[in-house]
Every structure is written in structure tokens, then in C-alpha cells.
Amino acid sequence: MIAAPSSDPLQLTRDGQLRNFISIEGLPRSVLEQILDNAASFVDVGDRAIKKVPLLRGKTVVNLFFEASTRTRTTFELAAKRLSADVLNIDIARSATSKGESLMDMLRNLEAMASDMFVVRHADSGAAHYIARHATPDVAIINAGDGRHEHPTQAMLDMYTIRHYKGRFAGLKVAIIGDILHSRVARSQIHALNILGAEEVRLIGPKTLLPADIDSLGVRVFTDLEQGLQDVDVVIALRLQKERMDSALLPSETEFFHLYGLTEERLRHAHPDAIVMHPGPINRGVEIASEVADGERSVILHQVTFGIAVRMAVMSMCMSGRETEQPGGRADHGGSHATPR
């Protein structure tokens, strides 16, 4: 009954500028392209002697990580610092704030410290939505991964990588392999690829790792790796968590590698110019063979470099989107939800 909003008031200002970055879903193609274009201008900053631009000078960015992550947090920190922001890192054991009230209390406290931006990672799907809806409108929220829902900055750096190597999205066939069920990265990638106009998005994995009704997202589903890889231009292998063996989703890493592991031999089914990507960290010999991870088609390390530029782009866009916002012109905050009074 309650339809998803067509223009996303949680993420966009009335004139269509980014104000929060919660999910790829709901964003127009123009905004995604703007992120990629802006990121391109930031890539060079890392090569300068003084690796800083003053776009976020005087702003305070809080990295709010309810779930452990070294890599993502580090790249966000680096991105914020290159934009000249002050950065505060807060790592919270999930147990301490698993109750809603204390999460709210904590947000209020951080807001009281005049923070300008929260970069949020949380184990619950929808956590970034929740925080964006309940935090003061003065704070920009950037989703650094919520449960199995989305990881939009990761997807955008993947899009940047694809555009960098392929120059376009039209006509591209992209295969995503492995644990789709638990992957927030895959969901964001699917939305981004479809919005940016890729020809075909394929998901490849055993049925235990494919969510029910995932084809409703506009993807082709394959359970056979070689069929799924046929003629694809981009291959994305996802990390397989060891816990999946314990919950009866897979029999063993060995059998998974045997069926879905990315090897040179299997890559021959893909397009000769296909690139290989992985959001990291890699499990060598589980989802990807070392020869492929380190091979000439692999662009995995470039992804990390681009990640900083993409995060700089997203952070600076959210901040400038807010600063140009008309006072009182902010779109309705929470959509149509009932709220307790």
C-alpha cells in the first residue's frame, strides 16, 4: 500500500542534490554519474605532494562503526582527511547499543558535539535509514554498510572501476558470483548497474546463497558458473564468509571452490577483455584462485585507490548539497511512517 518514493526525500534535496547517501536504490542516474565525475577529479589528489583539498575544512566527520571494519573505515577516514575535515572514529561493540534507546541517546550526544556528518556501519539492514530519519537534519548520513541491505560507496567505487576500464556501461554484461544472500555489496551493485544502464546483470551461485525472488531486481540468475560467465565483460567475485559452512548453507570451502571458484580456466568463458573485481578481503582458493587475483585481468588493487576518491566525492557532495539547501526547503524527512508521539 505504501509505495516507495519516486524521488527520495531522505537522500535528495528538493532540487535533486545529494544530502544523505543511504542507498543506491532511489537515486537517479544523473546523481550516480555526478559521483563518478567528481571522483575522477579527486583521483589526482592522492598523487600530489600535499594530499589535501579544503572542501570540508572546519567540518567534523564521525565514523560510527557498530560493526568491525578496518578497510572501509580507513578509507573513509583518509577521504575525510583529504577533504580537510576533522575526523572522529567511534567503534562501538554492537552489544553495547543493541537496544534502540541507547542508540538514540548516543546519536543525540554526538549531535550535541556539533558533528556535521555520520559515516555509519551497522549489522542491521535499515540502520542507516533509521539514523537518517531520527538524527537531526543538520547531520549528513553516509551509509558504510547496513546489514545485508546496501553498501553504496563500495558499489560506486566498483562502478568507477568499471567505467575506468570499460569507458561505458551500455552493452556491458556483468556477473556477480557467490554469496549474494548475505551481500550488501551485491545489492548496491545490482541497483547501480541497472540505473547506469548495463545491458545485463547476472548472479551466479548455489540456491542456498541466492535470496528468494532476487530476480525481481532485474537480474538473470545462474547456478552454473561457466554458463553464467559466458561472454561477460566484468566478473565480480564476492567474499565467502567462513560462517556459511556452519549454518548448513554449504558443505565445504573445497566444494564451493570446485563449483564456483574463479580460475583462469573458467575465465576463458568470459569475454577476452573481461576484468576481474573483488570487494575484498580475498579468500584465496575459496572464491578466487591466486592466479586470477594476481593476474593481468585483476583490477582489485585499483578498486582500493578509487575507493578513496569516490568517498571524497560522496562526502563533499552531501555537504555542498546541504549548504545550498534553502532554509525550510528541506524535503519532508520521514516519508509516510507513523511515529510515536
Binding site: 537496544k99 534502540g100 534507546e101 542508540l103 542491521d124 535509514h129 533509521y130 546489514g147
Partner: peptide, 10 residues
């Protein structure tokens, strides 16, 4: 009143 004040799964 706090029962719904959390991310959806919680």
C-alpha cells in the same frame, strides 16, 4: 515506546 526505536531487524 522504545520497541520500534531501532533499525528494523532490532
Amino acid at each position: 515506546s522504545s520497541a520500534k526505536l531501532a533499525p528494523f531487524p532490532s
